[in-house]
Simulated assay, not measured.
Amino acid sequence: MSLDNFVRKWIPSWIREEGPESDVVLSSRVRLARNFVDLPFPHLASDTALREVIKRLKNAVEVIKNHPPYQDLQLNPLNEMSGLDRLILVEKHLVSPQFIENFRDRAVILNGSETISIMINEEDHLRIQCFSPGLELQKAWEEVNRLDDLLEEKLHFAFLEDKGYLTACPTNAGTGMRASVMVHLPALAMTKQIGKVVNNVAKFGLTVRGLYGEGTEAFGNIFQISNQITLGLKEEEIIDNLYRVTKHVIEQERTMREGIMTHGKEGLLNKVGRAYGTLKYAHIISSQEAMTHLSDLRLGAALNLYPQVSKQAIDELIILIAPAFLQKIMGQELGPEERDLKRAELIREKLS
Results as ranks from 00 to 15, higher is better:
residue 3 L to M: 03
residue 3 L to C: 04
residue 5 N to A: 05
residue 5 N to C: 08
residue 6 F to W: 08
residue 10 W to H: 09
residue 16 R to W: 02
residue 21 E to I: 10
residue 22 S to L: 00
residue 22 S to W: 06
residue 23 D to R: 07
residue 24 V to A: 03
residue 33 A to N: 02
residue 36 F to D: 04
residue 36 F to T: 00
residue 37 V to M: 13
residue 44 L to V: 10
residue 50 L to P: 01
residue 58 K to R: 13
residue 68 P to Q: 15
residue 68 P to V: 11
residue 68 P to D: 14
residue 68 P to K: 15
residue 70 Y to M: 04
residue 72 D to E: 15
residue 73 L to S: 03
residue 81 M to F: 01
residue 84 L to K: 14
residue 88 I to M: 02
residue 90 V to H: 07
residue 91 E to Q: 08
residue 94 L to D: 09
residue 97 P to H: 07
residue 97 P to W: 08
residue 98 Q to H: 08
residue 104 R to K: 12
residue 106 R to Y: 02
residue 108 V to A: 02
residue 108 V to P: 01
residue 109 I to P: 03
residue 112 G to P: 12
residue 113 S to R: 00
residue 115 T to D: 05
residue 115 T to L: 01
residue 117 S to K: 01
residue 120 I to H: 02
residue 122 E to H: 07
residue 129 Q to S: 10
residue 130 C to S: 08
residue 131 F to D: 03
residue 135 L to T: 13
residue 139 K to L: 09
residue 141 W to H: 13
residue 142 E to A: 14
residue 145 N to G: 09
residue 154 K to Q: 15
residue 158 A to F: 05
residue 160 L to F: 13
residue 167 T to R: 04
residue 168 A to W: 04
residue 168 A to D: 12
residue 170 P to K: 06
residue 170 P to V: 02
residue 174 G to V: 02
residue 178 R to Q: 10
residue 179 A to T: 08
residue 183 V to N: 09
residue 189 A to M: 11
residue 189 A to L: 12
residue 197 V to Q: 09
residue 201 V to L: 09
residue 201 V to A: 08
residue 207 T to C: 12
residue 208 V to M: 11
residue 217 E to W: 06
residue 218 A to W: 01
residue 219 F to Y: 02
residue 220 G to A: 05
residue 221 N to I: 05
residue 224 Q to F: 02
residue 227 N to M: 00
residue 228 Q to T: 12
residue 231 L to H: 10
residue 232 G to Y: 03
residue 239 I to D: 07
residue 246 T to V: 02
residue 248 H to V: 09
residue 250 I to M: 06
residue 251 E to H: 15
residue 262 T to D: 13
residue 265 K to V: 00
residue 265 K to E: 05
residue 268 L to V: 06
residue 268 L to D: 01
residue 272 V to D: 05
residue 274 R to E: 14
residue 275 A to I: 07
residue 277 G to D: 06
residue 277 G to M: 10
residue 278 T to N: 12
residue 283 H to P: 05
residue 285 I to Y: 08
residue 287 S to I: 15
residue 289 E to W: 15
residue 291 M to F: 11
residue 292 T to V: 14
residue 293 H to E: 12
residue 298 R to V: 09
residue 300 G to Q: 08
residue 302 A to W: 07
residue 303 L to F: 11
residue 307 P to K: 00
residue 311 K to W: 06
residue 318 I to M: 01
residue 321 I to Y: 00
residue 329 I to P: 08
residue 329 I to T: 02
residue 331 G to H: 06
residue 332 Q to D: 10
residue 332 Q to K: 15
residue 337 E to C: 12
residue 339 R to W: 08
residue 339 R to A: 08
residue 339 R to H: 05
residue 343 R to N: 05
residue 344 A to P: 03
residue 344 A to F: 09
residue 344 A to T: 00
residue 352 S to E: 07
residue 352 S to H: 13
